[in-house]
Design a protein around this nucleic acid. Structure first.
Length: 500
RNA sequence: GCGGGCAUAGUGUAGUCUGGUUAUCACAUAGGCUUGCCAAGCCUAUAACCCGGGUUCAAAUCCCGGUGCCCGCACCA
């Protein structure tokens, strides 16, 4: 579906809507409704089950979301956000405003707003140093971080975290002591990130407050053993830099083993494979709409040694967009925070064996992927609209209906109670025709509908049985009501990777 | 941030150019009748002119400002 149409369905069903809607909304802020809240929680649960399942040594923590100024100074965020950059729309190069204007304003640009700098560039007819065009724009705002102060004095500046990763690096020393003092050590965070984006766009795609799920894996750069043979023959849709430079946009299928032969480390490819399996097998994105885009040296942050973005082809956005990534960050983060905090974050692995761990980062944009689940799996099938969510992601996995409310209400309500007692979220609906109730469930992504009818309540051979209807095939089968919970429960647990 | 377009019930819309009845229709939702396994039918109900100012006897309609959304460009450390 197109963006407007998809967004309309999601608003109508109460999946999400603009924040502060009654006051006209606020750019880049969204509220999740009942279905969206539940879906997002289940998506996060699925992420956690999958990625923490990769190793006994990967753990979830929940850090505060405000960072003292020292943290963002050490991480580079303060510095990078403070230097305004002006870019040339003709040749796409960008320049620090201070360098660009050093002849015109030798005193520097500190304290000026982006608009003021833009005005100086315009009024002095500054040309692009690279291509010579008069196509320089207004610089982006100084600081994309939200800043506030702690306490009453107003002196202690803090920032809402612009990414969840920093909190994991801050926790490394504590986690080393809390844990078994062994590498690799994975620290996972599911949390909010806050960025004062210049131009939030496309609903959930670029928000000012959003949720990230990230796994930072600290490892010994000399040795990061993984059970690679289990994934060696997996085929990945990759678009390597060399191929991109030829103008190709479609990925090619390459096995994990071939990627290793090409020079990528086994640990890196191993995690790439599991990112693919999560998107394809757990979230059930169509395989042909997933690709792994290798970022060139120029495109990636300077500290990233390797970077593949996991991209999904959004029909609503008209192309591939990033939904996750795998970054090999080297020792950049622990080095920076070591300098910033005046500590050495090297760890002792044995006698005369100290090493500064390297970091492999797996990122996952929760909101973007929620949108992708709608984009990929919510579709019109003839007259009906159905959302083919996997059962373990469905906000309401089961709907229970009395075929005739007058006669079957009591038995149906009792069944709802029994399912809920078994830990299964079950919805109940008796309004209007049975077909309409099925249709409502289809659109909400409910995979199973259970109907209580005359055979269920009358004395006879089928007493106590109900029909179970499958959302995708519309097929029905008759089974004992007591068989429902054991039948459904295994389907409602998110998949985990094979355990080694 | 720049340029262009748009804004009417929950959703999609008619009406706007050319100001003038109780703001159109469909779907959805709720209640009822009927039916009883895939959005059937009938009756009823709920529900909207983005916000603020101006022009006018009179503004959904014209003008100004704001906000939001969409597209392209830029941005996405």
């Amino acid at each position: 579906m197109k963006l407007d149409e998809l967004y309309a369905v999601l608003r109508r069903r109460g999946v999400l809507w603009p924040s502060a809607e009654i006051y006209g909304g606020a750019q880049g802020l969204f509220d999740y409704g009942p279905l969206g809240t539940s879906l997002k929680r289940r998506l996060q649960d699925a992420w956690r089950s999958w990625f923490l399942g990769l190793s006994d040594d990967y753990h979830l923590i929940e850090p505060a979301e405000m960072l003292p100024e020292a943290v963002v100074r050490a991480s580079g965020h303060l510095e990078n956000f403070t230097d305004p950059e002006v870019s040339c729309s003709a040749c796409k190069n960008s320049f620090r405003a201070e360098t660009l204007l050093e002849k015109i304003r030798p005193q520097g640009v500190d304290g000026l707003t982006a608009e003021q700098i833009g005005e100086i560039v315009r009024s002095n007819q500054v040309r692009c140093p690279t291509c010579g065009a008069s196509a320089l724009g207004v610089p982006r705002p100084f600081n994309l971080m939200f800043q506030t102060t702690l306490g009453t004095s107003g002196h202690e500046r803090v920032y809402l975290q612009p990414e969840t990763a920093q909190a994991s690096y801050l926790s490394f020393a504590r986690m080393w002591d809390v844990g078994r003092r062994a590498l690799p050590l994975g620290i996972a965070v599911i949390g909010r990130a806050y960025r004062n984006e210049i131009a939030p766009r496309q609903v959930l795609f670029r928000m000012r407050v959003f949720t990230q799920a990230e796994l930072q894996i600290f490892f010994d750069p000399r040795s990061f053993p993984v059970p690679f043979s289990a994934v060696a023959s997996e085929r990945l849709p990759v678009l390597r830099v060399a191929r991109r430079e030829l103008g190709e946009e479609s990925p090619e299928e390459v096995t994990a083993a071939e990627l290793v032969v090409s020079g990528l480390p086994e640990f890196y490819v191993f995690h790439l494979v599991h990112m693919l399996r999560f998107l394809r097998d757990v979230l059930r994105y169509p395989a042909e709409r997933i690709r792994f885009l290798e970022k060139s040296e120029k495109e990636r942050a300077f500290y990233n040694r390797l970077q593949f973005d996991a991209e999904f082809h959004f029909e609503s956005l008209g192309g591939f967009r990033e939904v996750g990534a795998v970054h090999y960050r080297g020792d950049y983060d622990l080095t920076r925070h070591g300098t910033g905090a005046g500590r050495d974050f090297s760890v002792t692995l044995g006698p005369d064996d100290r090493v500064l761990p390297h970091v492999l980062e797996l990122t996952f944009g929760v909101d973007r992927n929620l949108w992708a689940l709608a984009d990929a799996l919510l579709a019109k099938d003839g007259e009906r609209t159905l959302w083919r969510l996997p059962p373990y992601l469905a906000p309401v996995p089961v709907g229970v209906f009395p075929l005739n409310p007058k006669e079957h209400r009591e038995a149906a309500r009792r069944l709802v109670g029994e399912l809920r007692a078994e830990g299964i979220v079950a919805g109940y609906d008796e309004a209007r025709s049975i077909g309409r109730r099925y249709a409502r469930m289809d659109e909400a992504g409910t995979p199973y509908s259970v109907t209580v009818d005359a055979l269920s309540v009358d004395d006879g051979p089928e007493h106590g049985t109900v029909t179970l209807r499958d959302r995708d095939s519309k097929a029905q089968e008759r089974l004992a009501a007591s068989a429902l919970a054991p039948r459904l429960q295994p389907l409602l647990r998110p998949p985990v990777p094979a355990y080694d």
